[in-house]
Amino acid sequence: MIIKQLSVFMENKSGRLTEITRLIGEANINISAFSIADSSDYGILRMIVTEPDKAVAVLRDNGFSVSITEVICLIVPHTPGGLFRALKILSDNNVSIDYMYAFAMETEATVVIRTGAPQQAIDVLQRHEMQLVSASQIYRL
């Protein structure tokens, strides 16, 4: 249930994101979700991709600083209160979230969550019958 997320250090200058997506695309790797955290002169690009290890190798070979972070991908119904229920389970169980980002499709939304305690998060969410995306599902998305 633990998903490997790719994080890339990126300077805030034109063409960097284009370059990264070009490299990923040319390696035939698909990006399932991403977010960018930015400051005034640099950003961190976080991505869920189909082949994380290959993506790391491609980016590293091209001189990028890359790291792999473990995250979980939670599926919540795309209805009012859907995200609230999931987050309440985590906060009731003292799992704090470092950051998260989401993408919604038709009837469901997927939320990528970074927490210091991914396994604990998985356990409590599953105990409450919340749906999580498995690694194999993500990498084939």
Binding site: Q5, S7, F9, A37, S39, Y42, I44, R46, R60, S65, V66, S67, T69, D98, Y99, R114
Partner: peptide
């Protein structure tokens, strides 16, 4: 230069 040995996925670490 931000080398991989200290690149962190978290903004607060880099800041």
């Amino acid at each position: 230069e931000v080398d991989e040995q200290f690149f962190s996925d978290e903004m607060k670490d880099l800041e």
